[in-house]
């Protein structure tokens, strides 16, 4: 899941300065789960903006705001969107980007959220970063724990000198991820994996922007 956090209303009002008619987009997927872009947050934003003299021309809660087809459909069905002075999107950056792509050169689109990270959900409302989408997954040799993401230095060959009784000096609340990896590999009797020198990461796998285009499968009906 993509984790987002609300921007300060003052900043949003700054974006919207001089624009009266505002259309709101929410996202019923990740942002809804994060309590940043669901039905309730759209309502809250409507109240805040009205209190500050804005006219809300409408709201749309899209199932996945990063899905271009869905957003496009909404634009077609709803003329109020394009006749607004601004569109505010309560979704992750990918959602904002999708809406902006459709609005193109006409109506300016603004983000209401900051996009933070890709999370594992421990349980409802508890999100933890576990993968930074590096393009070259090494979890097979790190017992399913990502040092690239969970070690503040992204080290690949074991702990730095900053381990304090198994914890990380950069943030003492956290275990040193290399101690965790070590313990799990040891329990699995796989320490030989740790003893091999891990080569430098191949960053050419992560050159931006990245894209994936699947070949259409004819066999599928």
């Amino acid at each position: 899941m993509i984790i987002t956090k609300k921007k300060e209303p003052s900043l949003i009002l700054e974006y919207l300065d001089g624009r009266k008619k505002v259309y709101l987009f929410g996202c019923n997927s990740c942002a809804e789960q994060c309590q940043t872009g669901g039905k309730r947050e759209l309502d809250e934003m409507t109240v805040i903006l009205r209190e500050n003299g804005k006219e809300i021309t409408g709201t749309s809660l899209i199932d996945e705001t990063c899905y271009k087809m869905l957003v496009k459909k909404e634009f077609k069905a709803n003329e109020a969107i394009m006749s607004s002075d601004a569109i505010l999107v309560l979704a992750c950056g990918a959602g904002v980007k999708t809406v902006a792509e459709i609005a193109e050169n006409s109506t300016p689109v603004f983000p209401a959220l900051d996009s933070l990270f890709l999370a594992s959900v421990e349980r409802y409302g508890r999100f933890f970063e576990g993968c930074s989408l590096c393009g070259e997954c090494i979890l097979g040799s790190t017992a399913g724990i990502c040092p690239h993401t969970l070690c503040p230095k992204g080290l690949l060959n074991g702990p730095c000198g900053g381990v304090i009784n198994g914890r990380c000096e950069v943030n003492i609340e956290n275990n040193c991820v290399w101690v965790d990896i070590f313990r799990r590999l040891k329990a699995q009797d796989r320490l030989n994996v740790l003893k091999k020198i891990h080569p430098p990461k191949d960053y050419s796998n992560g050159v931006k922007p990245r894209k994936v285009i699947l070949e259409r499968k004819k066999t599928r009906a």
Binding site: P159, G161, V163, I164, G166, L191, I197
Partner: peptide, 20 residues
């Protein structure tokens, strides 16, 4: 860091540095 706690992961890294 011979005083590292736990020592084993530090030891493995130490031996990797030697190998390197």
């Amino acid at each position: 860091a011979p005083g590292a706690e736990p020592w084993e992961p530090e030891m493995i890294k130490f031996e990797k540095k030697i190998e390197a």
